[in-house]
Simulated assay, not measured.
Amino acid sequence: MKFQRRIKGIMLVIIGAMLWGISGTVAQYLFQKKDFSPEWLVVIRLLISGLILLLYDFIKDKQNVWKIWSSKRDSLSLIFFSVLGMLGVQYTYFAAIKYGNAATATILQYLSPVIIACYLAIRRKKIPNSQEIIAVGLAMLGTFFIITKGNIHSISISKLALFWGISSAFAAAFYTLQPHSLLNKWGSTLVVGWGMLVGGVTFSFIHQPWNFTGQWSNTSIFGVIFVVLFGTLIAFYCYLESLKYIQPTETSVLSSVEPLSAAFLSVLWLHIPFGMPECLGTVCIIVTIIILSRVKNKKL
């Protein structure tokens, strides 16, 4: 029984990570083939996903979803998480895809564990251990291969793609660290549901949901549904469910399937060039994730 539960947890996190990776490639298709704007897809994704998650939380637990706003401290923390964390990571990631591709954007976003490790080392005034130093070195090497294709004299991706990709990593680090106390107190579905909805409402003042540009077709309709339903709600549900059966450190390692699936589908479907330097860079960053997960596991 224990073995079956573990297999179930592993399958859930792999499915969730693959859906995240695939949704990034689908978003690239919408941006680059159907002329959709990242702003519109972000605001629609956040508003719809946030509403559905809050409805799910209400039906499942029969609790008042407004209770999180009863505390002034929690309310402020939730607003920061919604705008800088949830909205920040969603927009920077989609912008990186718009100006680059899903594979590169996803891999660059996976530099966030390195940023977290560096931040914690500075905050704790503690020199990183040898494993953490190796992980940072591998991450830098991986980034070098991805953005230069091994040629130190040139950058193989656009400056905007690099800027938004690195910004996405910082936003993902904030998204991971900031809501810790909120998640422990209120639960993930309520916090993330409100984070998405508040982030979506906030971004609506910048880009209205009805302000649409792009080409509608059967494939683009399916693409939007996939990004919102499979790439957000189902992926999020699978990831959370996996935590019931395996350790969080294991889920972080297994979720490295996300950049692999994004890279594979980008090459296969959108014919994005992905040579040996990009493969080496991807391997370096995935090894970085594994090393940092092991370090975190030892500290727990």
Score class of each variant (00 low, 15 high):
18 M>N: 10
241 E>W: 05
270 L>R: 01
149 K>V: 00
136 V>D: 04
161 A>D: 11
142 G>I: 08
17 A>P: 04
79 I>Y: 07
188 S>K: 00
248 P>I: 08
57 D>G: 15
190 L>P: 00
161 A>V: 04
260 L>T: 10
267 V>Q: 06
260 L>F: 11
297 N>S: 13
30 L>Y: 06
67 K>P: 00
242 S>R: 08
13 V>D: 01
160 L>F: 07
135 A>E: 09
139 A>D: 06
292 L>S: 06
33 K>I: 03
205 F>T: 06
166 I>G: 04
100 G>D: 12
254 L>W: 11
287 V>E: 01
172 A>N: 13
204 S>F: 07
81 F>N: 03
239 Y>H: 05
169 A>R: 01
85 G>N: 07
67 K>Q: 07
286 I>V: 09
125 K>Y: 03
251 T>G: 12
68 I>W: 00
255 S>G: 13
289 I>E: 01
73 R>V: 10
128 P>Y: 02
23 S>D: 04
40 W>E: 05
32 Q>Y: 01
204 S>M: 04
78 L>D: 07
274 F>Y: 14
157 I>G: 09
110 Y>P: 10
200 G>K: 12
237 Y>V: 13
156 S>R: 06
158 S>V: 02
119 Y>I: 13
107 I>F: 08
172 A>E: 13
295 V>Q: 04
140 M>G: 15
233 L>T: 13
230 F>N: 14
255 S>Q: 14
194 W>N: 05
14 I>C: 12
234 I>C: 08
216 W>K: 01
236 F>L: 15
20 W>E: 00
212 F>Y: 07
62 K>T: 08
65 V>K: 12
266 S>P: 03
141 L>C: 07
50 G>A: 05
136 V>L: 09
131 Q>G: 05
219 T>H: 05
118 C>L: 15
13 V>K: 14
287 V>Y: 06
259 P>N: 08
188 S>R: 01
53 L>I: 10
23 S>Y: 02
199 G>R: 07
284 C>W: 00
148 T>D: 09
274 F>C: 11
282 T>I: 01
299 K>M: 15
11 M>K: 04
240 L>E: 11
12 L>P: 04
230 F>H: 13
183 L>T: 04
215 Q>Y: 08
77 S>A: 11
165 G>C: 13
232 T>V: 12
131 Q>F: 15
158 S>I: 05
199 G>H: 09
39 E>I: 09
155 I>L: 14
284 C>L: 02
12 L>C: 11
154 S>F: 01
55 L>D: 03
97 I>F: 05
41 L>A: 03
189 T>I: 10
204 S>V: 02
292 L>G: 11
154 S>H: 09
120 L>D: 00
250 E>Q: 15
132 E>I: 03
121 A>Y: 03
72 K>N: 15
